[in-house]
Design a protein around this nucleic acid. Structure first.
Length: 559
RNA sequence: GCGCCCGUAGCUCAACCGGAUAGAGCAGCGGUCUUCUAAACCGCAGGCUGCAGGUUCGAGUCCUGCCGGGCGCGCCA
């Protein structure tokens, strides 16, 4: 519809002349229903170029505008120069028929058709269970991937990790120390500081080791399986056991959240392929990298930073920036048209270096979209909770889901814009979970299912040939019009990488349906009217179900 | 000190590329179940959009400065 009206406007404007090259009228959905179904501010935008008053332009435009009355009922000038369009009844009922035909595909668009996107998210190294902090990343990334999928992109979900660094070494040593305490009765103990409190640990436990219970569990399993045979040996078996166990747990947590990765990318690949050293050479060849004090530096001052940045330490070990650059070059090399990263706010200062590196190597960094989300502040008993994976002062995602359910967890992380801080009050989430807005959406869906069940009981099959023109009540047309914007909402949410728009929209759908439900009965009305209303209910169910599915949230048939 | 994000109703947050009278939920007050799910609906109250300038037909939105909160600024990841 937008496209149709835009074309008609451009045709009319052509006759008027003086319109700037490439002008595209902008549309919005008026907040006030008195302002019609669609509005354009084209006349105001053109005021300057045409050197005429907006209202005058708008009036001439409307006079010249040729619109098919079967689609558009009216076009009128209002306010400072808006042109308000009202859809015809015929268009509205045809659009509703279209929703019903598309069913569980309704909402899908072809915006990204023929293009490929990769969304990298979670990407936690296997040093411990996923925490509430990872939750926002995981749910945001998965839902953004869903949005790409629904808007026609060929979408890949990827998990990037590093199992070779210092943290993994400390993790392995932590497991080994717990194991020794089990396998060797003579192994002593010591006291270290953990989260401000003294903790008793095995004597060989690293000062900054991991204190979580899962470490002891892994050590216990090793002892059961291998007895004392691992004593005094290499640390490698401990590392492998820890990585295997922790990754299994992470994947299980993701599955609970409804997340399945398509690919896993190990940072080590970039070392083994020699990719990172090729990058160093290429940067040096362009005089964007140089050696100083035994280290290799990236000339980030050439990109507006105050200082240059170390790429390879004097120990010969790369900093994480180098493989990050390599990883992004590699992803672009795989032919993705869009490379999306989901990062926490702590990466805000580092990803520009990565983009600079990608650009320096002659790649198209514009294909890379970095989504920065603000941190989750966990509040318990009115106090913010400090979290650390190493010190085990965290709340895991699994614990959170146990407390408030998977659906509430997902919705909570999605209902707010990524770039606002998210305050997660645990007490509130637990106590007031029944008041959570997600239930409102699910309830509307369950209610529709209930009506359809009831209709069947009383022998009221939902005829597919209903006369949709009978839907003339205020709440009926309002509901249909709300349903109509679903594809557009998905397009915009995908483009902006803002899943919360879908959540906000679904609430509007649920409100519109509930108002219709309150004002109009279905079962018991004259057959033609009842049939038409049932079709409307079915269409609404499609939008709710499809929308919830984009968010990764269940659509229960009864509650 | 520098960079980025945020500041909107008592609380948590919306506001689509700068548009028309800034909207929801929760909390508060008052109504509504003999009829398809009351996990609901209707109504009332609640605002100098942190402050001060600027840009323009028009600013919560863009620019500058200040105030307040968060995150980051390492040969750590």
């Amino acid at each position: 519809m937008r496209e149709y009206i835009a074309n008609r406007i451009l045709t009319a404007l052509e006759e008027m002349g003086g319109v700037p090259e490439g002008f595209a009228p902008d549309f919005q959905q008026p907040a006030n229903p008195e302002h019609g179904d669609l509005a354009t501010n084209a006349a105001m935008q053109l005021s300057r170029a045409l050197r005429r008053a907006p209202r005058q332009i708008a009036e001439e435009l409307v006079r010249r505008l040729v619109l098919d009355p079967r689609r558009v009922a009216s076009a009128e000038v209002a306010g400072p120069g808006f042109i308000n369009f009202r859809f015809s009844d015929r268009y509205v009922s045809e659009a509703l028929r279209d929703i019903l035909e598309q069913g569980d595909r309704y909402g899908r668009t072809a915006t990204g058709a023929g293009r490929r996107a990769i969304v990298e998210f979670v990407s936690a190294n296997p040093t411990g269970p996923l925490t509430v902090g990872h939750g926002r990343n995981a749910v945001l990334g998965d839902t953004i991937a869903n949005l790409y999928d629904w808007t026609g992109w060929d979408t890949t979900r990827e998990y990037y990790f590093n199992d070779a660094g210092r943290q993994m070494r400390i993790l392995a040593q932590s497991v080994e120390a717990r194991y020794r305490a089990l396998a060797d009765p003579s192994h002593g103990t010591k006291t270290i500081d953990g989260a401000g409190e003294p903790v008793v640990v095995p004597e060989s436990f690293p000062e900054d080791g991991y204190l979580g219970d899962y470490i002891a569990t892994i050590a216990g399993e090793l002892f059961e399986r291998h007895g004392t045979t691992l004593l005094g040996g290499d640390v490698q078996p401990f590392k492998e056991a820890a990585e295997t166990a922790i990754f299994a747990e992470i994947k299980a947590t993701l599955v609970r959240l409804g997340i399945r990765m398509d690919t896993y990318f190990n940072e080590r690949t970039l070392y083994e392929s020699g990719e990172i050293w090729r990058i160093v050479d290429a940067l040096k060849a362009r005089d964007l990298a140089y050696e100083k004090d035994g280290a290799v530096w990236f000339r980030t001052t050439a990109y507006g930073k105050e200082t240059d940045t170390v790429l390879v330490k004097s120990t010969g070990e790369p900093t994480y920036r180098l493989p990050d650059i390599g990883y992004h070059v590699e992803k672009l090399g795989r032919g993705f048209d869009r490379v999306v990263d989901i990062f926490g706010a702590d990466h805000i200062a580092t990803f520009p270096d990565v983009l600079s590196g990608v650009k320096a190597l002659g790649h198209d960094a514009d294909r890379i979209q970095v989504i920065i989300y603000q941190f989750v502040t966990l509040v318990r008993g009115g106090e913010p909770v400090k979290m650390s994976t190493r010190k085990a002062t965290y709340v895991t995602l699994d614990e959170l889901m146990d407390e408030v359910s998977e659906d509430v967890t997902r919705f909570f992380f999605l209902m707010r814009s990524p770039n606002t801080h998210l305050e997660f009050d645990l007490d509130l989430a637990k106590e007031a979970s029944e008041k959570n807005p997600v239930f409102y959406l699910q309830y509307a869906h369950a209610r529709i299912c209930s009506i359809l069940r009831k209709a069947e009981e009383v022998g009221f099959a939902a005829a597919t040939d209903a006369d949709l023109g009978l839907l003339t009540h205020e709440t009926e047309t309002a509901l249909v019009k709300t349903l109509l914007s679903f594809p557009d909402v998905l397009d915009r949410a995908a483009e902006a990488h803002e899943p919360h728009r879908v959540a906000t929209y679904l609430r509007e759908v649920a409100v519109a349906f509930t108002q219709f439900y309150g004002a109009c009965r279905i079962i018991g009305e004259a057959a033609p009217v009842a049939a038409a209303r049932m079709r409307l209910a079915v269409a609404t169910r499609h939008v709710l179900r499809n929308g919830l599915s984009v968010l990764g949230i269940g659509a229960p048939e009864r509650m």
